[in-house]
Write a protein that binds this DNA or RNA. Sequence first.
DNA 1: CTCCGCTCGGGAACCGGTTTCCATCCATGT
DNA 2: ACATGGATGGAAACCGGTTCCCGAGCGGAG
Lengths: 356, 356
Amino acid sequence: MTRKSEDVGRSTIRDVAARAGVSASTVSRVLGGVYPVSAATRTRVMRAVREMDYVADARAKAVAGVATPTLAFVLEDITGPSFALMAHGVEREATRLGHLCLVCSTEGDVRHELEFVEMMRAQRAAAVILVGGAADTAEYRDRTRRMADSLASAGSRLVLCGRPTLGPGAPVTVIEYDNEGGAYALVAHVLAQGHRRVLFLGGKPDHTTAQGRERGYLAAHRARGLEPDPALLRHGDFTRDAGHRLMRGALKEGLDFTAVVAATDMVAAGALTALHEAGLSVPDDVSLAGYDDIPFARDLHPALTTVHVPYEELGRLAVRTALGRTSETPDEHLLLGTHVVVRDSVAAVGESGARA
Amino acid sequence: MTRKSEDVGRSTIRDVAARAGVSASTVSRVLGGVYPVSAATRTRVMRAVREMDYVADARAKAVAGVATPTLAFVLEDITGPSFALMAHGVEREATRLGHLCLVCSTEGDVRHELEFVEMMRAQRAAAVILVGGAADTAEYRDRTRRMADSLASAGSRLVLCGRPTLGPGAPVTVIEYDNEGGAYALVAHVLAQGHRRVLFLGGKPDHTTAQGRERGYLAAHRARGLEPDPALLRHGDFTRDAGHRLMRGALKEGLDFTAVVAATDMVAAGALTALHEAGLSVPDDVSLAGYDDIPFARDLHPALTTVHVPYEELGRLAVRTALGRTSETPDEHLLLGTHVVVRDSVAAVGESGARA
DNA sequence: CTCCGCTCGGGAACCGGTTTCCATCCATGT
DNA sequence: ACATGGATGGAAACCGGTTCCCGAGCGGAG
């Protein structure tokens, strides 16, 4: 069992050098491109490289100072349409900028997230992007702050994409979208159709995205001098199943409402199905609106009125600002705007609107 | 501008050693865990590590022979629900097995794909997983074969996930699902409902996934002694928009059909919307079926009858077989089964069924 | 009281590259 | 013919780790 070059095929630069009859330095110079090498030598080296199908080990290059820049992104579950959109934006922009992309799904497990960030620090990633909402607890701030500091001290950068901001002074880039504003505009639109009892299917109470959207819901009511019935606020996950369950529950209770605003298109999809199952027609019997404008929103029936969030753009922007930084740049906090897109699922409250 | 340790925080193992008053070898041993080190020394070292927030450079470790195993996956667009599902399976299983995950979207660009595979070879990835269908041309086989060989010679492994097989002898692991069988079962179900003119909304003619599903469509007809009208076969992308466009076209032509089978749930979603727009009711006026069973299929209205494909399982299986290999293991080719899931979008052909 | 062996930790070689420094070689200028 | 200098390419140091090899102390057995 020799450890010669033919072992399994992974040949080193010295193997190539030997075959070309030159030194390793010369091979490196030929491959590097810039250093003057005679045409004859270059040809010989290139032939050897081709014959051995040699590719320099990127890790070794990195140690020697010629690193492949790498960027990491962490999300809860790539399967969620809005996460997928962000991920897509991140990935596209990163590879456009010549970066490799490492990805990690945490499945909502914080320990997993911490572990992964630690690995990224070891990998000397240029930036770590955390995408997707989170609960804004003291523990969250503390933990995230610690990640930011430790990444910063390793010359890397933490980016929060659609996540709660940290306190001032944290070495972090934050790109958010306007949850409250979008929800405000959406609910204002629903109220303008004459609806007065609007059921809100929200997310986890401590989740900042959910909170922002709920604030918008309330603010839109108050701007009209309305105070929504607390019984109209329901909370669950940002999933299709939660929407389905919540809607079914409300229907079974005989809750009185003429419109439903879901905190998420996924939630809206589940709610819509529950409505259909109950024999209700949207928007004739009840109006329904979502949030996110995931690609599927158009193909629900009726097409879902919702709030468009530029998720992909968000991801791209995150990468761009994270990478285009010097240590002098101030920490950034960008807030992207949203707008409501009116489709067919919200109608004026009709005479048939009153349900018991 | 000194290059001392305080430069930007990235401290080396020797910095830690100096601070702890030991040698670099000792620090390495403490961190490594197994080698006997006295409790006192260990404590001193650990304190230094903590104080300096030191993390060993993973690239350097890799060069020294202690690599973080890495696996790469390549797909066209993470935004597609079935790709996302596969990606999720791959990612989960990989991290479960302690591997880092590199990801790349090719946007359908073959050059991009080749470049990326080359980078992965340089990164010494344990395996490269290509997910998602492709056109099965000679050029494809050739190119893919070359990738497989070059990865194999670098001690790494190519995995095809839902992609056309290569010729025998290629160092490749292939995990596929049964397109023909699934389509056969689905179309048989539709025919059993009495439909005789079934519109097929297929994919690109050279795309193997599309071909398999189309073969199933034809075979199901022939098994009943039927020969489908060629006018009922339409081809486009596997996208929502293609489905929408194709359906609109067929409707405008006044094509005669009582059921539609789409090659993809996405296509079915677009078709469904086009049907609704034309004032047609599903399944009362026309039946509709999809393929893939993406999570959203349930929330279409009516809920979509479709073929379930275990995408996530596919991804998991791909990494498991790719990683659990020795050089002795024979090349594998696994074919996963599918089954049709009956929901509400296909009904028996009614008296109202005949459309002009 | 030796001698032996075990525990612990330092020095140096090595992993696979890059880059600095230096020795040649060859072509010019005079 | 001889000094000069640019073009080449080799040897060696270095990047940040790991691990082999070995010597120094220490405790217990004879």
